[in-house]
Amino acid sequence: MDILITHGGLARTRSFHVSPATLVTTVIALLLALMMLSGVIYHMVLLKAVHAGWPIVADIAGLVVPGDTGQRDRFLRENLDAMAQKVGEMQAKVVRLEAMGERIAGLAGIKPEEIRAAEAADATARPSTERLPVARGGAGGPYLPVEPAQDKPSLAHLNELVDTLDTQAGRSGDVFTLIESRLLERRLELMMVPSAPPVLGPVGSGFGFRIDPFTSRPALHTGLDFPGPVGTPIRSAAAGVVLSAEPAGPYGQMIEIDHGNGLVTRYAHTSRMMVRPGELVRRGQTVAQVGNTGRSTGAHLHFEVLLNGVPQNPARFLARGESLSPKADRNEAKAGAVTGSSRAR
């Protein structure tokens, strides 16, 4: 095949000879280029229109690629169903967590009014958010996050539920933070309550009336006796400040420790005192050693607990320990206290 190219009146005519093989190769190359261009247009325009939801173009493209659209919708629906199930499980866990938080708050001494105040503040801060009802007390049963009017959950509905869960989780976190603070305060308060035994071992004479070992007559014993060999360590029943460490008549060598809130402990008949007045002592710290000084028939520790100067039964403190609060128990202690103070026997 010959191709002639002419230009103008004086220009030389040019001729090209094209073989059949070259012509076929050129046609094939053009067809391949058109196919590649069509593929680019398909991916960049049609699929983009389907995924982005372009008007008119998306409808036309949907006719071209109906299988891809149906597969995409089926995939999204399956994922929404799985998300709805997970959100339902999360909702049930949050409800149980809130119920448990209310019970623990009661044990920590937090009043329901404080929790309701926190919920009211949260509702005021987010007035536009629709909230699901919060269960009070026990809760259970299946959770269906889909509204009755809907056959399948929507993405907007799931987002709303996730926002609700986030709000409930934040409120539960605040409640547990308050509980932790109260429990810490209570723990610090209990460290000042004489609930740790000063001497490990059995108790001899208890608190109350007994036959006096010297006079053989009934008399009030105002503490607990812990018999033991001379030199046995005596430990502070609670943290506090040493009021005195000196001989005290019938008590012999005696240590008094102030624990605050009107609570004072006495450690009598010691053979050696290892603290001085004004010294800070911690719970369980060795403050003296068992002895046989003062009005005593043998080596032992005479241990007393006084509330506002009135002798109390130390066994009640040692037995209740962690559950005793001197502020809450003060009226009960006064009502059951013996009027006046007697020296150890």
Score class of each variant (00 low, 15 high):
residue 84 A to G: 01
residue 317 F to W: 05
residue 309 G to C: 03
residue 250 P to M: 14
residue 332 E to K: 09
residue 62 G to Y: 10
residue 218 P to M: 04
residue 89 E to P: 02
residue 161 L to H: 03
residue 141 G to N: 01
residue 3 I to K: 09
residue 333 A to Q: 12
residue 70 G to V: 09
residue 147 E to L: 08
residue 38 S to H: 07
residue 154 S to Q: 11
residue 133 P to L: 05
residue 81 D to C: 08
residue 240 G to R: 11
residue 312 Q to T: 01
residue 207 F to K: 03
residue 115 I to Q: 01
residue 190 L to R: 15
residue 17 H to I: 07
residue 132 L to A: 13
residue 143 Y to N: 07
residue 192 M to L: 14
residue 63 L to E: 11
residue 248 A to P: 11
residue 145 P to Y: 08
residue 91 Q to T: 11
residue 128 S to H: 14
residue 312 Q to W: 00
residue 338 V to G: 00
residue 97 L to H: 09
residue 168 Q to A: 10
residue 98 E to W: 08
residue 18 V to W: 06
residue 303 F to L: 01
residue 201 G to W: 00
residue 288 A to P: 07
residue 159 N to I: 04
residue 286 T to F: 12
residue 245 A to D: 06
residue 29 A to M: 11
residue 28 I to Y: 09
residue 301 L to N: 07
residue 119 E to R: 09
residue 321 G to A: 15
residue 108 A to K: 09
residue 108 A to M: 08
residue 58 A to R: 10
residue 1 M to H: 02
residue 234 I to M: 07
residue 232 T to A: 09
residue 139 A to Q: 15
residue 152 K to N: 03
residue 298 G to H: 13
residue 53 G to F: 14
residue 269 H to V: 14
residue 337 A to H: 01
residue 181 S to I: 03
residue 82 A to N: 12
residue 128 S to C: 12
residue 60 I to C: 07
residue 335 A to R: 12
residue 146 V to C: 05
residue 240 G to P: 05
residue 316 R to S: 15
residue 57 V to L: 11
residue 41 I to V: 12
residue 104 I to K: 11
residue 125 A to V: 02
residue 170 G to D: 04
residue 36 M to S: 15
residue 307 L to A: 05
residue 39 G to H: 15
residue 336 G to Q: 04
residue 94 V to N: 03
residue 74 R to F: 00
residue 44 M to C: 09
residue 269 H to T: 02
residue 335 A to L: 07
residue 322 E to G: 07
residue 93 K to M: 15
residue 4 L to P: 06
residue 303 F to P: 00
residue 50 V to A: 04
residue 139 A to T: 14
residue 202 P to V: 07
residue 306 L to G: 00
residue 273 M to V: 13
residue 297 T to R: 02
residue 272 R to H: 14
residue 91 Q to K: 08
residue 233 P to I: 01
residue 174 D to I: 01
residue 90 M to T: 03
residue 261 N to K: 04
residue 136 R to Q: 13
residue 184 L to A: 06
residue 46 L to F: 13
residue 217 R to T: 11
residue 149 A to E: 12
residue 177 T to Y: 10
residue 259 H to V: 06
residue 111 K to V: 00
residue 251 Y to H: 08
residue 309 G to R: 00
residue 81 D to T: 06
residue 260 G to L: 00
residue 102 E to Y: 10
residue 70 G to Q: 13
